[in-house]
């Protein structure tokens, strides 16, 4: 499954990141150690301020760590970014309003200098993958929030990166749409064999999607627990009522409680 023979998609050693603010330093990440194997689906979960998005942004080279080591696909995050090794899905769809859906999805391909025909073909293919066939000529505002977010996932996938970074992609959607997209995302992951790193603050979402759940805690941002899920790769929605599922959820909840002092 792993390309280039690299087994570890992400390798984080003693990573820390401190922001200097007017109110003094903020320890966003402290002594973080993490290993993500190729093909894994890893979720970061924790209360706000625990550094889960920051960690993801460090992986994406959108933020510079102040200490420790990190490699993505065996190279530094910057090299990985320049090699276009990952696709990033943000909290909001961030589609460009002046481009049709197809041209939005083809945006990274344009930047990478692909030809017109291939761009169109790939955009169509990935729109089909996220069930948006027939919407390619529409503009973002003509689509619902869930459809827009699906288009942004297609945009992240269309240049076929090994790694998919998703930062609370479904956080702004209602629960019904969210369930639906979660199911689709799992199928997509199964079909493509990508490595997915996923940030969420929903326990059921994390447990339902992930092979590994990373529980994080704030002040300083650190990892409390890494839970390997015993659930099978095939997961229908009703797996959420199974005892195994509830057991994992219970562990996550305990981890969160242990790391969180409820002083807010």
């Amino acid at each position: 499954m792993a390309r280039n023979g690299v087994e570890r998609a992400v390798d984080v050693r003693d990573l820390s990141l401190t922001f200097q603010t007017a109110d003094g330093p903020v320890y966003a990440l402290s002594q973080v150690n993490l290993e993500v194997k190729a093909g894994d689906f890893v979720s970061f979960i924790g209360p706000s301020g625990c550094g889960k998005t920051t960690l993801m942004r460090v992986i994406a080279d959108l933020e510079q760590p102040t200490g420790g080591n990190i490699t993505v696909n065996g190279v530094s995050p910057q090299e990985a970014r320049l090699a276009r090794a990952y696709g990033y899905v943000f909290q909001a769809p961030a589609l460009y309003p002046w481009r049709s859906i197809e041209r939005n999805v083809a945006l990274p391909l344009e930047i990478m200098g692909l030809g017109r025909e291939e761009r169109r073909e790939r955009a169509r293919k990935y729109l089909e993958l996220v069930n948006l066939t027939g919407f390619d000529k529409k503009y973002p505002w003509q689509l619902s929030g869930g459809m827009q977010q699906r288009a942004s996932i297609a945009r992240a996938l269309c240049f076929d990166p090994d790694l998919l970074l998703m930062d609370e992609p479904f956080g702004a959607l209602d629960e019904i749409v969210r369930d639906h997209l979660n199911e689709q995302l799992l199928q997509l992951w199964d079909k493509t064999g990508k490595t997915v790193v996923f940030v969420t603050h929903s326990i059921p979402e994390a447990v339902f999607l992930s092979t590994h759940i990373v529980v994080m805690s704030p002040r300083p941002g650190r990892i409390i627990d890494i839970i390997e899920s015993p659930l099978p790769r095939e997961r229908p929605l009703d797996i959420r009522e199974s005892p195994e599922f509830l057991e994992v959820a219970q562990r996550v909840r305990e981890g969160l409680r242990a790391g969180h002092s409820y002083d807010e």
């Binding site: 922001f19 200097q20 603010t21 007017a22 903020v26 966003a28 706000s48 301020g49 625990c50 550094g51 889960k52 998005t53 920051t54 942004r57 933020e63 909290q91 609370e168 956080g171 940030v199 603050h201 941002g221």
Partner: peptide
């Protein structure tokens, strides 16, 4: 929800303004 990114604005240059 806007998470930690929004709250912690990194300062580019000197440590203390």
């Amino acid at each position: 929800m806007t998470s930690e990114v929004a709250r912690i604005e990194p300062l580019p240059a000197a440590a203390r303004p």
